[in-house]
Design a protein around this nucleic acid. Sequence first.
DNA 1: CGTTATCTTGACCGTCGTCAAACAGGGTGG
DNA 2: CCACCCTGTTTGACGACGGTCAAGATAACG
Lengths: 245, 245
Amino acid sequence: MTALEHPLDPLVIKFRQHTALKAEDEAAIRGLPAIVRWVEPGSYVVREGDRPTDCALLLSGFACRHKLTMDGDRQIVSIQIPGDPLDLQHLFLDIADHNVQTLSRAELAFLPRSALQAITLAHPNIARAVSISNAVEASVFREWVLNVGRRDGRRRIAHLLCEFAVKMDVQGLSDGAGYSFPMTQEQLGDATGLTSVHVNRMLRALESEGLLKRHGRSIAFPNADALRSVADFNTRYLHLGRQET
Amino acid sequence: MTALEHPLDPLVIKFRQHTALKAEDEAAIRGLPAIVRWVEPGSYVVREGDRPTDCALLLSGFACRHKLTMDGDRQIVSIQIPGDPLDLQHLFLDIADHNVQTLSRAELAFLPRSALQAITLAHPNIARAVSISNAVEASVFREWVLNVGRRDGRRRIAHLLCEFAVKMDVQGLSDGAGYSFPMTQEQLGDATGLTSVHVNRMLRALESEGLLKRHGRSIAFPNADALRSVADFNTRYLHLGRQET
DNA sequence: CGTTATCTTGACCGTCGTCAAACAGGGTGG
DNA sequence: CCACCCTGTTTGACGACGGTCAAGATAACG
């Protein structure tokens, strides 16, 4: 809201959640040549097989990473919320191994890969921030393997919702009432390895247990502790807070 | 076999698969203070919740990363073969989010975390190599989410076997005959989100289709192309070869 | 206000889990 | 050398979680 606001502030804020940045580091980030653009829901930011030239940052709206099997089944492997870098994962890889697609209308900042690589060479703190960001995302992927591989449908969905809620809270994107949830039940199925029909059954089961409340596209958790317990949810894998050593 | 051989050569070789290193970079790696030790099968190298002080490299034998649900179900999230770094994943994270455990008798080289961090600061090429190594591992986790989430038991197992074979080939660890496979059927189940009983069924199904042959602890693939086709396997996610940009 | 996407529900079916028992192999010790 | 484990593999019967198909109800949206 102030005149000092900069489009890349969300990236600075995200990095500072995990590591200390000096004023010069932050200045260097703000000095990156960013192109900001709004895109429609369902827009591809990265496509598997692409040779990425830019790295996008999600300023507002929601996106997901996903992969497809040969016969067209889709698996969403992570959900991105405002402030998330969308393809730091590919900063050191030539060919994209998965797709990144928006789930809603979204505002993106595009940063040239070369500029980002250069900045990590010149600023060790930024290199460190990028490494931590990617390491945390890798940890989330591991948790998702566990989620999809070893929890039943009800717990899987509960776990995904807990993760979403915590990430939104950390970004300061939740009002007291609840969350505006960006996924259809079909997409929820793609993220949990279930069908939309079964997602519906489990969602209503959770609702009838009093673990969540839905009105339209928004969702609330009247008893977050109970939900976390059902979900077998522990925030450790999100590595919240400064990584000191 | 020569006098010039060094315990950390496998790490140098691994890094060189993905990026160019100068002589001084390699010298710096070989200069790291490594402690080499043999451990028994089932030894924990890292435990979830630990604050790691060392980074282990797997010199010989096999290991896996895994996580546990609250009620004790195990999910293996990756398999490590000789030459693999075992917890570069935690180099920038304070608290371990998963376990690393040997699947067989194994020879490990332990490197102090601090020394590794220092070397990445002094040698940009090594920093890059570490980033690439971690990025490739993250890509493998994504593929595992897809594997466990969207493929049936038969394809899941076939996919895991294909990945194992390719990684062994790249490391030059396969003779023409086949592979010595380090996992029990129970562990294979933990890696694919199945039970050992169902793993057995699918393994015999694949065998009766002529897609694999087993004698004791070793496995061969008489028709690798057909197996890859069943597995929906594509090497792209392994990012084999130099990452140039 | 019509059109389309999304959600909801029911009936039915298949993959995979559970439980249990038999079997093979490899190591150990008497 | 053989008996005896212990671990891992193999098999069968049965049941459940979740998939499939199809229809109808709601909500989103131009």
